[in-house]
């Protein structure tokens, strides 16, 4: 398997957004994360530990940002400016008691400093600026709860991690995944530096030495390897499950059926906030959701007919073309 071969495949599948490279894909696995349903409970993250032989690194190494949580739930405290009513004690409370509540605010105020990351602002145009708050409300409390965001490898089509690998250990598969070949990896960590989502995880240590004291190691999943020191790793969209499903379909001379299998995180999600499937299959649930929300692959800027639809991709303006669609969180105001 020559480097040449890798590069050929790479350029074959990793085509620029303009060329619509994904048309050649056999499958293209994608995901949808509905933040209206996500409760931030962490079930997906632990399911990922269980499925993918992720080592537990301990408190000290967690403190050095060496935790190997391929799927993490980010929790942000800032809130968009959606103040339902003035959150400070109202001066005209007497008027309220008499049955004259203040008018409901439905207009969202732009609160984004326009000088901040100008490139990103273009992503959603005015819509984006309207929706995104900066630094929370003036309220004394966390009025709208928390903002939870499950982050797994976004499996970008125009992945920033791929072109920087000096040994072509990270490459694009015919399924549209960013794959990491552990045997090829030399641990330069360029890919991780280049990932805007910080979703690549480096084995700084030989975790197998102490992460699975006997008999904990009996839980390890034989369908994928245990990675050693000096190797980069990341979410694979449970490629071992994809492989089983594809092999099974092939043995039965049929196509993979939507919903026949899913990744560990999707399968366990207690609220069903995560959806997984093949975007090359127009009838799959993910395809339907992407098209309902008028988000298209291969674009750096969406031109939605209905600007109110919730679908967006995280940091889409960076031209990464991710395979994970997020649906905005919803709050009553």
């Amino acid at each position: 398997m020559s480097l040449n071969n890798i590069l050929t495949n790479w350029s074959r599948y990793r085509k620029g957004a303009e060329e619509g490279g994904f048309h050649e894909y056999e499958h293209q696995w994608g995901m949808v994360v509905d933040l209206n349903k996500c409760i931030g409970c962490n079930a997906c993250s632990v399911a990922c530990y269980a499925e993918n032989n992720l080592p537990v690194v301990g408190e000290k190494r967690c403190g050095k940002n060496q935790a190997m949580n391929w799927l993490r739930i980010e929790r942000y405290w800032d809130e968009p400016d959606l103040e339902p009513y003035n959150a400070t004690p109202s001066a005209n409370i007497d008027a309220w008691i008499e049955g004259n509540p203040p008018a409901k605010k439905t207009e969202l105020k732009p609160s984004m400093p326009s000088s901040y990351l100008p490139g990103l602002l273009e992503e959603g145009g005015q819509n984006f600026e309207q929706r995104v708050g900066f630094g929370g409300t003036k309220s004394e409390f966390q009025d709208f709860g928390a903002s939870f965001l499950p982050m797994m490898c976004q499996q970008c089509h125009a992945a920033t991690c791929e072109p920087v690998c000096p040994v072509a250990a990270t490459y694009h598969t015919p399924d549209g995944l960013n794959a990491q070949v552990y045997n090829r990896c030399i641990g330069s960590r360029y890919c991780s530096n280049n990932c805007p989502y910080r979703l690549r995880y480096f084995n700084f240590w030989s975790y197998y030495e102490d992460a699975w004291p006997e008999p904990l190691h009996m839980q390890l999943n034989p369908d994928l390897s245990v990675r050693d020191k000096g190797v980069m790793e990341k979410c694979t969209f449970c490629i071992q499950r994809i492989r089983v499903a594809k092999d099974k379909a092939k043995m039965e001379d049929r196509k993979v059926i939507d919903g026949e299998f899913s990744t560990a995180c999707v399968q366990t999600c207690p609220t069903g906030a995560l959806v997984f499937g093949d975007m090359q299959n127009p009838d799959s649930q993910v395809s339907k959701l992407w098209s309902y929300h008028q988000v298209e692959r291969g674009k750096t800027k969406q031109s939605k007919q209905n600007k109110e639809l919730r679908g967006y991709r995280v940091l889409e303006g960076l031209n990464t073309d991710p395979s994970v669609l997020y649906l905005e969180r919803v709050r009553e105001v």
Partner: peptide, 17 residues
């Protein structure tokens, strides 16, 4: 702890939903 002005978690009002 904050999104630093990037659109990590977007929010819409329930009426939009």
């Amino acid at each position: 702890e904050t999104q630093l002005g990037r659109k990590m978690v977007g929010t819409v009002t329930a009426s939009v939903f």
